[in-house]
Write a protein that binds this DNA or RNA. Structure first.
Lengths: 142, 142
DNA sequence: GTTTATTTAATTGTACACAATTTAATTGTA
DNA sequence: TACAATTAAATTGTGTACAATTAAATAAAC
């Protein structure tokens, strides 16, 4: 097998599918005035409010170079507040505003709407997710 | 199940894994002075030389807004040439230079090196790839 | 055959990603 | 306690992504 072709590599389908799935999120998230990475940050904060930039970065595998401007945009939309941590002035605490918390209800239907758009059964979705998570853990715990 | 969490969605593992895998390519591609998307374009051209911008875009699912500046960078590195198609002046033909063709040999070991880095067996890689490709085709043939 | 519609790249503007560096705060250590 | 090492964000710079628009060439319709 000639591996030096597009379709014979794992990475291209991964790269292309990731972008296609994000594209399917886009019209749904547009209604919330969120980009996909912004949505991921909001998901994290809805789960656990009041996290530092690096704590968010650890979960999303993003650094401050990406997160700082992104968080400033969420702040401009008044979805989060950014305040220096009193106990450790190096850290910046990200907290949901009332508007940010309220957005959660509007976002509640996004996952099922997406699954419909992707035409995935629960089984397919869970199976694929588990495989991806396994490989992801393999790569990040090195 | 509460779907409105990070790990319970298919898309985040896909997004994160794609970036992690690309990160594993990076040190290998750095030796070729290529970014990952640039590498994808080179893979296409090594397979079939002399393609239009839109033909490349159809395969990679990228538009001219992404490809035009990327191809100009490949041109600056003297890996490709960009010339208006004589038969249809709207199109720009992308052709490998001698340097571009020669790079193929240096790139030959990238796939196996990557597979080693990812610690994937052939079976795992093929199985995952096939699932991703199936879903990708599902999403793009709509 | 001219006008209209479509196609192809390029351009403009916004928002990630990420490497590398900088700045400030905290921790560890002699 | 000073001082070096580490940590956390921010900053700077490059390179994608992608929506929206523009400009030029070709195709289609009348």
């Amino acid at each position: 097998m000639n591996r030096l072709t597009l379709t014979n590599q794992v990475c291209f389908p991964l790269y292309a599918l990731s972008r296609q799935v994000t594209a399917h999120y886009r019209p749904l998230l547009e209604q919330l005035d969120l980009t996909y990475p912004q949505y991921l940050v909001m998901l994290l904060l809805w789960e656990t409010d009041n996290q530092s930039v690096s704590a968010i970065g650890d979960r999303l595998l993003l650094d401050s170079g990406t997160l700082t401007p992104l968080l400033k945009r969420l702040e401009q939309k008044e979805l989060v507040s950014r305040t220096r941590n009193m106990a450790d002035e190096r850290q910046v605490s990200i907290q949901l505003t009332d508007t940010g918390r309220a957005l959660r209800e509007q976002a509640a239907t996004v996952p099922e709407q997406l699954q419909q758009r992707l035409q995935l059964t629960d089984q397919q979705a869970i199976s694929l997710r588990d495989q991806l998570v396994t490989l992801l853990n393999q790569l990040t715990n090195e």
